[in-house]
Amino acid sequence: MPIYLDLHEMPDGVTAEHVAEMHQADLKVEHEFNCRGLTYWCDEKRQTAFCLIEAPNKQSLKNLHAKAHGDVPLRIIEVDGNIVESFLGRIEDPEKSQNTKLNIINDPAFRAIMLIETSNYLNRVEANQFSVFTQKFHRSVTKTIKQFEGRTVKQDNNSYLTSFKSVTNAVLCALKIQSNFKYITPKFDIPNRKLKIGIGCGVPVTEKSGIFEEALELTTRMCEIVKDQIVISNEIKSLYESENRNSFINKEHIRTLKPEEEKFLNTLMDYVEKIWNDSKFNVEDFSKSLGYSKSQVYRKLKSITGKSANNFIREFRLHRALSLLHKQKGNISEIAFETGFNSAAYFSKCFFNKYGLLPSKYIQQHII
């Protein structure tokens, strides 16, 4: 049976005790709707609550809440239980304290989300064998995440997606990983070893369809698109300084995106992800489509990505092409045209200029 996570906005005056009573009311009548209440999260500060419920469909969940206490959720998304546990740490109610009738859970679902990326498809070792660097990197990152009480949601050879209850811990973890990275990277290998970290934050249910999707989208874009090594959202900066009595973020080590920069980044990427593989696309269309003047687009794009519009689109296409080559999603000509290049020859030339080898050579070395 599907599992759903729903969002309730708590009116003024509603406390964690009230939410616990509503949860108990759900459990008393859940059988009437073929549902099973698994657990909930309550955040008195942000006035939100989230219920995790196994149900035949969304309507059954709404009917359950309507009968139990009348507070129908604002939004509902379908989720995977394992993913929920990875982000939030549990999928069942915590054990009830002894000698208490009501299990009051004042446990926010708000999380800081950190994405760590190093290397790329080019620099991974063939046959998924870990190099000495990779072994050291994984040991170091795993140890550091644990040290700062983070949870690993997903990882592969070159990336980690992690979740933190504490914004401070997320920021300090990123700085520690950055510091350790310098010591585990051999000097001769520095040009091939890149580290990027993005940190955003948010709640698990928003207007978007996936769990933490809004926070994940911005975090991924900060990590992969912004030129600096560690990039955080403006909300992360504000929360960090609030948690640490106005102790300021070190601008030398961390780039904080201003609200207008976050808006531009999201507007830019929403547009680019629609048109990036259209070979007819002209960068002159950028200013019209994004609602900025040409000079504004150039200045903002250069500040955030370090690239001109032409270079940004070309490198975005090459990155997607590299991914398709690695996943063997077609031959060189097919991937060239699929990623917006007018000819396989021009694609190969751009690929060589960017990565230092031809696509055919990459396939020989990394795929076959």
Rank of each mutant, 00 (worst) to 15 (best):
K28M: 12
N158E: 05
S333Y: 08
R221C: 04
F181Y: 15
T100E: 15
W276Q: 06
S86A: 15
D26T: 03
N82W: 04
S233A: 10
G210K: 15
R111F: 03
H326A: 12
R46K: 13
R46C: 01
S308F: 07
I77V: 10
N63K: 12
F351K: 09
D228N: 14
H23A: 14
E95A: 13
F312C: 06
V226Y: 03
R193V: 04
K361Q: 14
A309M: 08
S308A: 11
T162V: 03
A215D: 06
G356A: 07
K194Q: 09
L175F: 02
Q364K: 15
D189V: 00
F164P: 06
P11K: 13
V132T: 12
N331C: 10
E338W: 04
E92C: 01
K182G: 02
K62N: 12
G13C: 08
T185E: 04
L195S: 04
V84D: 02
P191Q: 07
N158R: 09
I249G: 03
L27G: 00
E126N: 10
E117D: 05
F212D: 05
E338I: 01
K300V: 00
G13V: 08
S97A: 12
N244K: 15
K263F: 10
K194R: 11
H69Q: 04
N157A: 11
E243S: 13
Y362T: 05
F33V: 08
A309G: 07
R317Y: 07
L7F: 06
L325R: 07
T256F: 00
L38K: 14
W41H: 11
M10D: 06
K274R: 13
K300Y: 13
N244M: 14
N34V: 08
V231M: 01
S348R: 12
Q24K: 11
D270M: 03
S279I: 14
K58C: 09
L265T: 09
E252H: 07
K176V: 01
Q129C: 04
Y160Q: 00
E9G: 03
A321S: 15
E315P: 01
C51E: 04
I232G: 01
E260P: 00
Y298P: 00
K196C: 03
I225N: 04
C51W: 10
Y355M: 06
C350F: 04
L290V: 11
K263P: 00
P191R: 09
L290F: 10
D12F: 08
L172H: 14
I91G: 06
K62D: 07
N266Q: 14
S131N: 05
L265C: 07
Q98E: 15
V272T: 13
Y160N: 01
K300N: 13
Y121W: 11
S279P: 02
D71E: 10
L290Q: 12
E95C: 01
K146I: 05
A16H: 05
A25W: 02
S287T: 09
N106W: 03
G200F: 02
K208P: 00
F33G: 10
E261G: 09
F286G: 05
